[in-house]
């Protein structure tokens, strides 16, 4: 059975019409926006990044239509690169943090003693919502890998490719993110 993404892509490449590209936009504009928002933390910037991601993808596909790509990770890569450029301008996210592995233990130790405050606990009755809140308390670099892994459903290899960081770093980030989350959610 053919991958639905490759069917979408094939349909677009065969017709070459921007209308056929609409199906790709419809399917992926949400994950791209979510990822962009994770980096920019600003809805306007995230929308701009999402828009530019698809414009660049369209341009690239029109110029070089015969290559094989995995649509989702490819779009995510474009999105991350655009966020990288934006971050350079605005300095609102330090991308070099993504690659940093040191000081992780001290961070974990630091947060281990920290519990979710009672007010938050009262507000979040559902366990899932507790997890959601806990994830948002993670440092951004962990949030990004957690989002790519569990919301965008990318493999470790794809995350490494998208973020341009070593595979091992992805594993370390995820491992430490889980460790931190466990400490947040320990009382549950």
């Amino acid at each position: 059975m053919r991958d639905p993404d490759s069917i979408l892509l094939q349909e677009f490449l065969l017709s070459g019409e921007s209308a056929a590209f609409a199906a790709i936009v419809e399917k992926y504009h949400r994950p791209v926006y979510w990822l962009a928002y994770k980096f920019t933390h600003n809805s306007e910037d995230a929308q701009d990044v999402a828009q530019e991601t698809f414009v660049r993808a369209y341009e690239s596909l029109m110029k070089n239509s015969d290559r094989e790509i995995l649509l989702k990770p490819w779009l995510m890569t474009i999105c991350v690169n655009l966020c990288r450029n934006l971050a350079k301008k605005k300095k609102n996210f330090n991308f070099s943090d993504l690659e940093r592995e040191e000081e992780e233990d001290s961070f974990v130790e630091r947060v281990q003693g920290k519990e979710l405050n009672p007010r938050e606990k009262a507000a979040q009755h559902e366990v899932v919502e507790e997890v959601q809140t806990a994830v948002q308390k993670l440092p951004k670099k962990y949030q990004v890998v957690v989002q790519l892994r569990y919301i965008q459903d990318l493999s470790y290899e794809e995350i490494a490719e998208v973020l341009r960081i070593p595979l091992n770093t992805v594993k370390v980030h995820l491992n430490r993110a889980k460790k931190t989350l466990k400490s947040y959610l320990a009382p549950l």
Binding site: R30, W34, V131, Q132, V135, Y150, L181, L185
Partner: peptide, 12 residues
């Protein structure tokens, strides 16, 4: 639990 995670922001 992580697999039940949802995006923390609504798409405009």
């Amino acid at each position: 639990l992580l697999k039940t995670l949802k995006p923390d922001v609504a798409v405009p």
